[in-house]
Design a binder for these strands. Sequence first.
DNA 1: CAACAGTTTAGAATAAATATAATGTATTAT
DNA 2: ATAATACATTATATTTATTCTAAACTGTTG
Lengths: 142, 142
Amino acid sequence: MAHSDQYIDKLRKSGLRPTKQRIKICEVLFDAEKTFHFTIKELVKIIENQANIKVSLATVYNTVHAFIRKGYLKEIPLNASQSYFDTNVTHHHHFFDEEENKLIDIHQDDVDEVNIKRIIPGKKIRSVEVIAKIVSDNQSQK
Amino acid sequence: MAHSDQYIDKLRKSGLRPTKQRIKICEVLFDAEKTFHFTIKELVKIIENQANIKVSLATVYNTVHAFIRKGYLKEIPLNASQSYFDTNVTHHHHFFDEEENKLIDIHQDDVDEVNIKRIIPGKKIRSVEVIAKIVSDNQSQK
DNA sequence: CAACAGTTTAGAATAAATATAATGTATTAT
DNA sequence: ATAATACATTATATTTATTCTAAACTGTTG
Ligand SMILES: [Mn+2]
Ligand SMILES: [Mn+2]
Ligand SMILES: [Zn+2]
Ligand SMILES: [Zn+2]
């Protein structure tokens, strides 16, 4: 439990008390080797498989949203039917594999800065995100 | 009713019979001066205000999805809580005004081609979309 | 215009997300 | 440490977007 202090810190900074449910959520989210994308349902399943702690859906939703508010997680809108979340909170872009229904990160350095010529008076750009949909390349055909 | 034939054509090509409900939906969607963005709820409200035809939610959903399948409408994922649709089916990008919750088109010519250096073996890019979130520019401060 | 296929609709069903309120726990004050 | 307090957790109910169902209705075709 080397990272436990960091989780407690993240929780406290999010205005949340460090309870065992929330620390478990942190372990799943922030202990992973690599960042990853998930739905709430998937997160609940991971927690259930990885621990014998029972965590209610409400707690997972509340904790995830608290982390999003603080910038410890990002929400990726892709599909109207459910939210995807991202533990990679750096500025980056995505491939979305339409066949596997999987997000794949594209590092910011792998996309030339997006140059938008149009401006809206009185408004400024806060963020720019690129989503590239990909499918199998059956290049043999045609 | 000059455009009526076009609507009937669109409906037939979508595999739908031209009923008065569907023609009304077409009028709202395709008769507008400019292309526009809408949610299903907004579309139903427009129809109710503009006609004394009653159209059920189910019919609106079904017709909109049939048009999406045919490419007569596009769906814009923005927000997990509800779908936005677009009568502009050309390849283009969007500003999303986070304060007004409104989409604004960015013409393809107003964005330099997005150059993604990374490739995924066996996959090809089908589409690339940019969403730039905008907020008020209170430039007076700081 | 009859017969049929396809359509509309109200209402039910589903599923994601959020709210509620009773019970439990971390924190703080004593 | 213990009690008091504030906050959390949970099961459950609610809300909301969307889809399904099945009965009544309408466009189409001959
Ligand atoms: Mn959300
Ligand atoms: Mn849809
Ligand atoms: Zn990502
Ligand atoms: Zn648009």
